[in-house]
Computed example of a mutant assay.
Amino acid sequence: MKKNSLSSMHRQSGASALVIMIMVLFFGGLLTLAIKLGPAYLDDITIQEALESLEGTEDLSTMGPAQVRTLINKRLSVNNVRGFDEKNITVQKDGDLVIINVDYEVRNNLFRNVDTVIHFQHEYEMKGK
């Protein structure tokens, strides 16, 4: 007959309450960052796709900078990008080449007095059909 020893039970232990609390705080912090910063990156991807879709647009090279900016704003509105200021877009023309610069930053409140600043900068050179 085998004798149960309690000494082997003491050697086996799981995570302590402190370790579990630290893990919850760490993964909770990562989840908070993903929830707060994710929409800004998704909007930036949408802005990039809207600008890249301008490549090959009919009469793009004959449009003025204001018309190109209006076309970009329409595409951003259709894609539900809100809170983007059109002043962040600069359009320059160099012959048939249209140069579009987008330079903006997104500020989010993380918690209390801690804020995040995400800076995005893109440059596109394109021609119309």
Rank of each mutant, 00 (worst) to 15 (best):
E52W: 05
I89S: 02
F120N: 10
Y104E: 00
M23I: 07
Q67V: 10
D43Q: 11
V68S: 01
Q67D: 13
K87E: 08
E105C: 03
D43M: 05
M1R: 03
I20R: 04
N113P: 12
S61M: 05
I45Q: 13
L54M: 03
T32C: 08
S53Y: 07
K3V: 12
D94A: 11
R11K: 15
G38W: 05
I45P: 01
G64I: 10
G95H: 15
K74V: 06
D94Y: 09
V114Y: 15
L37M: 04
S53L: 06
L25G: 14
H10S: 15
Y124I: 00
V98W: 00
V78P: 08
T62Y: 06
I100A: 12
D44L: 06
N113V: 14
L30G: 10
L71Y: 00
G64T: 14
S77T: 14
K129A: 12
D94P: 04
V19C: 01
K36T: 14
I99C: 09
L33G: 11
H122Y: 02
H122L: 00
V81A: 08
I72T: 08
T116I: 09
R82N: 11
G28E: 10
Q12T: 15
S61A: 08
E58C: 02
E105M: 01
G29H: 07
L51K: 09
T90Y: 12
K93Y: 06
R82F: 05
D85E: 00
D115A: 14
Y41Q: 11
T46S: 13
R75A: 11
G95N: 15
L110A: 10
I89R: 06
G14Y: 11
S16F: 03
V102S: 09
I47Y: 00
T62E: 09
A15R: 02
F27C: 07
I20W: 04
V98L: 05
E86C: 05
N79F: 03
F26A: 14
D85F: 00
A34F: 05
S77K: 11
M23A: 04
N108G: 03
L76K: 03
N108K: 12
V68I: 10
Q48C: 01
R112Q: 15
V102H: 04
L33Y: 13
A50Q: 09
L110Q: 08
S8C: 11
T70I: 04
T116D: 07
F111N: 12
V114T: 15
I118K: 09
N80G: 00
I72K: 05
V117D: 07
Q67A: 13
T70C: 02
